[in-house]
């Protein structure tokens, strides 16, 4: 029996994206990782990661906990300092500078911000600022970083909040919003800066199961609109439907990668099969009840 998590009818939009990546510079990758590695002391958390993400591509990183997928994603925003290899965002080396003698040193703040400028990141824990309203959260960086006048920034923020379906919650503080709503505000906050790339670090892992759908719907919409996305997720259904490329990590290395059907249906890789089997086992009650009925 082939392992299958993808729905029987694959959505046409996702396969369209897969076929034709849009964007002005489709040939060169927008994110390029070469031989990226990181260690915490003796523990190698990432080893020899090579990965290219192209315009409008959706890449899902999957793997067991501790496999390094979150560390990898955080490295792409230099929230974790990778200490081997290079990460280029739109051709700019991220986080490091190479001096005359070929040694690497930390890039200055302005240079780091420049490389990060087109990145938006969404965290597992939302990381909203609780003392600001939803609108305040979205407006803050527009005013302080982009230097847009407050009333204009608020107009733009309202548009983005409307896009994630939360225009009427603009004046609420995060504490009064549900987890799903908070995460959508966090997505709006990142989107307001008009990034070219969105990084999602387990965006639905801290949510009640009932609230996962609304966040995934927003992310799906983004993917359909051609946003370049890298998503660390445990939502295999989402990965199967939306991803162009699924990357499976284990113990800090990329074990295998491919299209959703290659990874979820056709893989012969034993570690990946074992990992996916765990997801199937979780729904086992479903099979047993149907068997009993028969």
């Amino acid at each position: 029996m082939p392992l299958s998590l993808s729905p029987s009818t694959s959505p046409p939009a996702a396969s369209n994206l897969e076929a034709t990546p849009k964007g002005p510079d489709k040939a060169s990758p927008i994110i390029h990782l070469s031989a990226v590695g990181k260690r915490f002391g003796n523990h190698q958390v990432l080893a020899d990661i090579n990965l290219s993400v192209h315009h409008s591509e959706v890449v899902c990183l999957i793997g067991p906990s501790g496999s390094g997928k979150s560390t990898l994603l955080r490295s792409m925003a230099f929230l974790e300092e990778y200490d081997e290899g290079e990460i280029h965002i739109e051709g700019r080396l991220l986080g490091w500078e190479i001096d005359d003698r070929g040694r690497r040193k930390h890039a200055g703040r302005t240079r780091l911000n420049q490389a990060r400028r087109n990145l938006g990141i969404v965290f597992q824990q939302f990381n909203l600022w609780p003392h600001m309203t939803a609108l305040g959260n979205v407006t803050e960086a527009l005013v302080r970083v982009r230097g847009i006048k407050r009333n204009e920034a608020e107009k733009r923020a309202m548009e983005v909040l409307d896009k994630v379906g939360l225009a009427e919650k603009a004046k609420e503080y995060p504490a009064r919003l549900s987890g799903g709503q908070q995460q959508r505000v966090a997505i709006a906050r990142a989107l307001a800066m008009e990034p070219k790339i969105m990084l999602f670090d387990e965006p639905t892992s801290a949510l009640d199961p009932e609230l996962v759908g609304e966040v995934l719907a927003v992310m799906k919409q983004l993917a359909l609109e051609g946003m370049t996305m890298v998503v660390v997720t445990h939502e295999m259904g989402f990965a199967a439907q939306v991803a162009d490329t699924v990357v499976f990590l284990d113990q800090g290395s990329i074990v295998t990668r491919g299209t959703p059907s290659e990874v979820f249906r056709d893989t012969q890789h034993p570690r990946l099969r074992q990992f996916l089997q765990n997801y199937l086992d979780r729904n086992a009650f479903w099979h047993t009840t149907t068997e009993q009925e028969n």
């Binding site: 990141i121 600022w129 960086a141 302080r144």
Partner: peptide, 13 residues
């Protein structure tokens, strides 16, 4: 929480 600062940092604050 550190995460709130990370979020801000990534937005360029």
């Amino acid at each position: 929480p550190r995460g709130q600062l990370e979020a801000g940092e990534c937005l360029g604050l």
